[in-house]
Design a protein around this nucleic acid. Structure first.
Length: 672
DNA sequence: GATCCTCGAGTTCT
DNA sequence: CTCGAGGATC
């Protein structure tokens, strides 16, 4: 070997070592020390040397993650130590039994466990011989699995070489391959673009990706690996506890789950379960439970196995996020704007921790996309706080007698024609004021918290009032008397009195709230506030023509037209007249001084503040001239993060928007 | 004419 | 919270 080659070889080995170190820092330590671009540069440098000296290329080089296509499918491999399954527990009592059985068998009064999330992916085994990855295999039936070495190599969080591995060793790492929720969403978007089939959930996507015959496809999929234990371990000193095993695995360069924790006793198990359950919605990947393992390996051995599951471990499952149920009926709802929304009435099913009996089907397109019919078996999903949705229809379970769903052409409430609006997606009842459903919904909107805030006048009561013809428009609310209210079912003196009081309170309001309450199409809280500040009083808005309206910030020709149209209708003018007569009043708009402290500053509030409600904070900011919006963008000046902030915080950090906490916020506004 | 930003509207259950 | 679309901007 000449000097040049020798130099290249040294440089190549140095680069491989450095890349492996950064992989370790990134995946295991979760603290990258160099930007991604710098990492890519290292990879490219390595590639350049390898291209110049093909004869020197090492097969464990990080550039060699993607191998050749397996045309013949996967070979079967036998696990030297079977990959066992875990016993499941679905409630506390089963966990208590598990714990008490362990205490009894081991004749101890307390026992320590490791608790970690049960990742919803697929189990694989990675075999490292003398530190090099030589085989990756799926779990299969536990005894035999499929050889997916080529695809396992393409996963970035699977090191091709262990760090500090004993020279003569055979170490089998076991863990879970999964796809993050973000990666899953991205993949499905790509599948859509390519006209390919969508995956149902991240687990299926991970399984499908790992089983691609072409490792190049597998490599392009966002797969991740988390180790949860050891299989075979020859030439490697086993520590005394499972927690130490996981730490040792991390030292070898693999990622163990960062949420693992040691707990003690039954109460410890349950608190770990609760902690992970609350963490669940915020984790980047799906988990379907918690795994408890006796920490002490000697004690594990004394516990032994039952059939194919260890007695020292238990999977405590969360309520499933997906369940199968049947569609009993498809109804349509009529919204305040006449929007016709189809709703699937479901046979009640416990999913994601609550009982779900309704799920929106959004619109006729969605019904066509799903091809859902009454009588169908459907998969319903509810993850975290997310609203339940019908994910898919099990078409092979469809009864022979089923008939295709026909979208109604007439409003089920008022029998008016249903028309598609411009986009062709939203169907609307053309009944307008003649549709009692639209009247009911617009009254509910008027009374709602963000509008006139009439406490006690909720959905049920509005329906009662309208159905009993005590009111037929929003002005009628102010003609109600306690005596009339008492004629309603389940209405006592106290409730009637309280309602009259809150109606009275609502007479004093603000112009933006009043405008919003009217329910003018396309006029929400923000636009209502813009109208109010621009024109100053109601009369000016009512007589404004389209040209005048488009001068308002964020109002264009379409919205302007809606506003003019609304005030042109005699009925609307009458109702507004009635409301003013009934004593609705608001303080005249205080012009925000041009030198206001936060003039032209945009704020977004997230999480809850301890000192004031979000609404209070918003109103305070607005009086100081600030604009308060609901979504973060590059134009946002400050994001105020209270406790338990939502996804807005992540976005703010990504966009580099200034984030301030409650203390800083108080300081900022305190200067006034 | 295309692209980005933001608002409005509708949604489930406790 | 998410989707669709109006409005602003280049």
């Amino acid at each position: 070997m000449n000097d040049v080659d020798k130099h290249s070889l040294e440089e190549m080995n140095r680069l491989i070592e450095e890349i492996e170190r950064h992989n370790y820092l990134y995946y295991v330590k979760d603290s990258p020390q160099i930007p991604d671009a710098e990492y890519d540069r290292l990879l490219r440098n390595l590639e350049a040397i390898e291209n110049a000296h093909p004869e020197l290329v090492r097969d464990d080089s990080p550039t060699r993650r993607v191998g050749a296509r397996a045309d013949e499918g996967f070979n079967e491999v036998e696990h030297e130590l079977p990959m066992l399954s875990l016993a499941n527990a679905f409630d506390k009592d089963e966990v208590r039994e598990f714990h008490e059985r362990i205490l009894r068998r081991l004749e101890v009064d307390q026992v320590e466990y490791v608790a970690e999330p049960k990742l919803d992916g697929l189990a694989i085994s990675l075999l490292y011989e003398n530190g090099k990855l030589t085989r990756g295999a799926t779990r299969g039936d536990g005894r035999r699995g499929e050889d997916v070495t080529a695809n396992a190599r393409s996963i970035r969080s699977v090191p091709l070489r262990l760090r500090n591995a004993p020279s003569s060793s055979k170490i089998e790492i076991r863990g879970e391959v999964l796809m993050t929720r973000k990666g899953f969403a991205r993949l499905n978007a790509q599948q859509d673009e390519a006209g390919a089939k969508r995956y149902v959930n991240p687990r299926n996507a991970a399984a499908g990706s790992l089983r691609q015959l072409d490792p190049a496809i597998s490599a392009a999929r966002p797969l991740e690996f988390f180790a949860y234990g050891l299989g075979l371990s020859e030439g490697f000193d086993l520590p005394a506890t499972h927690a130490e095993v996981l730490d040792a695995i991390a030292d070898l360069g693999l990622r163990a789950n960062p949420e693992r924790q040691m707990v003690s006793g039954f109460d410890g198990l349950i608190s770990a379960y609760k902690r992970l359950l609350s963490l669940r919605p915020n984790l980047p990947y799906d988990i379907d439970g918690v795994v408890y393992k006796v920490n002490d390996l000697q004690l594990q051995q004394r516990m032994g196995f039952v059939s194919r599951a260890p007695r020292w471990a238990l999977a405590h499952k969360f309520p499933a996020e997906e369940e199968i149920t049947t569609v009993e009926a498809i109804d349509v709802q009529v919204g305040r704007t006449g929007a016709i929304t189809p709703v699937a009435r479901l046979s009640p099913v416990f999913v994601g921790g609550v009982t779900v009996s309704n799920a929106t089907l959004h619109n006729h397109q969605e019904i066509t996309r799903l091809d859902v019919r009454v009588g169908d078996s459907v998969v319903v999903r509810r993850a975290g706080d997310v609203i339940p949705e019908v994910v898919s229809v099990l078409h092979d379970r469809r009864p022979d007698t089923s008939v295709a769903y026909v979208f109604p052409v007439r409003c089920p409430v008022c029998n008016s024609d249903i028309v598609l609006d411009e986009g062709g997606v939203i169907a609307r009842c053309s009944g307008g004021l003649f549709c009692i459903a639209q009247v009911r919904e617009s009254i509910k909107h008027f009374a709602s918290r963000r509008a006139m805030d009439i406490e006690g006048l909720g959905s049920k009561l509005v329906e009662q009032l309208v159905d009993n013809q005590l009111i037929s428009n929003v002005a009628d609310i102010y003609t109600l008397s306690a005596e009339r209210l008492l004629t309603l079912d389940r209405m006592g003196e106290k409730s009637a009195d309280n309602l009259i009081k809150s109606i009275q309170r609502s007479r004093s309001t603000t112009l933006p709230r009043f405008l919003f309450a009217l329910g003018i199409p396309q006029i929400g809280e923000t636009t209502a506030a813009a109208l109010a500040t621009h024109f100053g009083d109601l009369d000016a808005i009512m007589i404004a023509d389209e040209d005048a309206l488009v001068n308002v910030q964020d109002i264009g020709p379409i919205v302007a037209h809606n506003v003019v149209e609304f005030f042109a209708q005699q009925h609307n003018r009458d109702v507004i007249g009635g409301l003013i007569e009934a004593g609705i009043n608001w303080p005249s708009i205080e012009r925000v001084p041009a030198d206001a402290r936060f003039k032209d500053k945009t704020f977004v509030l997230t999480g809850s503040l301890s000192g004031m409600s979000r609404t209070e904070a918003r109103e305070m900011l607005m009086t100081l001239g600030a604009k308060v919006t609901s979504s973060v963008s590059s134009k946002t000046d400050y994001v105020v993060a209270g406790s338990d902030p939502g996804s807005k915080l992540d976005k703010a950090e990504r966009l580099g928007v200034q984030v301030i906490d409650e203390a800083e916020f108080n300081e900022l506004i305190g200067g006034n």
